[in-house]
Write a protein that binds this DNA or RNA. Structure first.
Lengths: 141, 141
DNA sequence: TATTGTTATACTCTATAACTATA
DNA sequence: TATAGTTATAGAGTATAACAATA
C-alpha cells in the first residue's frame, strides 16, 4: 500500500474538497451554459440590482481585468443589462432572461449545498460551519 | 452596503478559503520554482520511493494525461529519476537534488499548515478537522 | 482486454502590464 | 491622483480524445 504524506494536512484537504465541490457545480451548471464564476456574478447582481462591475469584483475577489470579459459575455447573451451610472461606472441589472436563468442557477447551487450539508454529521455541523465561515471572512481580501 | 447572497453557502466558503490557501502556497513555492501540483508529487514520491506515475496520479486525483508533462518537467530538472519497473511502468525516486528541494517544500507546506491551524479556535479545532478530513476521504475518487 | 504512459488540444480561473476615460 | 473599465497575454490546473506499447 502506498503512503499518503498529505492525509493530515488541512490545507490540502480543503483543496481536494473544494475541487470536488467545484467539479460538481460545473457539471450542474453546464446545462445552463454557465461557468461557476458567471453563476456567482449573476447571483450577486440579482441580489443587488444596479450594482457596479467593480463592486461585484471586489465582493467575489475577481480582478477587474477578469471581470470585463465575464460581464461582456453575460451582456452579449442578453442576461444582464448595463446602464451608465456616471461617466465611468455602469450599473448591472438582470434582464428577464437573466432572472430566469438565475432562478435555475440558484436551484443548482442550493441542491449542491444541501448535499454538502447532509454529509456533515449533525454533531459537528455547527462548529464546522462556524470555523469555515470565519476563515472565509478573514481572508476576504 | 452591498448584499452578499453567497455568505451562507459552505461550498462557496470552501472555494474561497481554498483559493486563498493555494495562493499563499504558490507564492511560497515560487522561490523553489515549483508549482503546487509539482510539490505534492515530490512529497508523494519522497514518501514512496519507487512509486509508479499512475499510482501518484490516482492518489492525488491527477489524470494520467496531466501527470505526463508534470513528471517530465521534474525529470528534466533532475529532481526525480525514472527507472523501468516492467515494460510499461516506471518507478519514480527522488534524486539528491530532489530530496533537498523536497525538504524545503515540506517546510513551506508545514509553515502554511501551521498558520492555517493557528487561525482555527482551539474549541472547534477537533470537530472542524474531523469533518474536513472525512469530507476529503469521502470524495477521494 | 485492461493498463501505462504519451501527445495534442481546449477550457476555466487567475495574474500582470499597459492603456483610456472619468471622478 | 485615484478609480472604472478594457485589452492582451501568460500561467496553472484540469478535461477529453486518440494513440502506442505492454500486461
Amino acid at each position: 500500500m502506498i503512503h499518503d504524506p498529505l492525509e493530515d494536512l488541512p490545507g490540502y484537504a480543503l483543496r481536494r474538497v473544494s475541487a470536488a465541490v467545484m467539479a460538481k457545480l460545473a457539471e450542474g451548471l453546464s446545462r445552463l451554459d454557465l461557468r461557476p464564476a458567471e453563476s456567482t456574478v449573476l447571483l450577486v447582481i440579482g441580489a443587488n440590482p444596479g450594482v457596479t462591475q467593480s463592486e461585484v469584483g471586489r465582493l467575489l475577489g475577481i480582478a477587474s481585468a477578469n471581470m470585463a470579459p465575464l460581464v461582456a459575455r453575460l451582456a452579449d447573451r442578453g442576461l444582464i443589462v448595463r446602464e451608465a451610472v456616471d461617466g465611468r461606472s455602469q450599473g448591472l441589472t438582470l434582464s428577464d432572461g437573466g432572472r430566469r436563468i438565475t432562478v435555475k442557477t440558484r436551484s443548482v447551487v442550493d441542491e449542491l449545498e444541501s448535499d454538502l450539508l447532509a454529509r456533515i454529521p449533525a454533531v459537528e455541523r455547527a462548529a464546522f460551519l462556524k470555523v469555515l465561515f470565519a476563515l472565509a471572512r478573514d481572508q476576504d481580501d
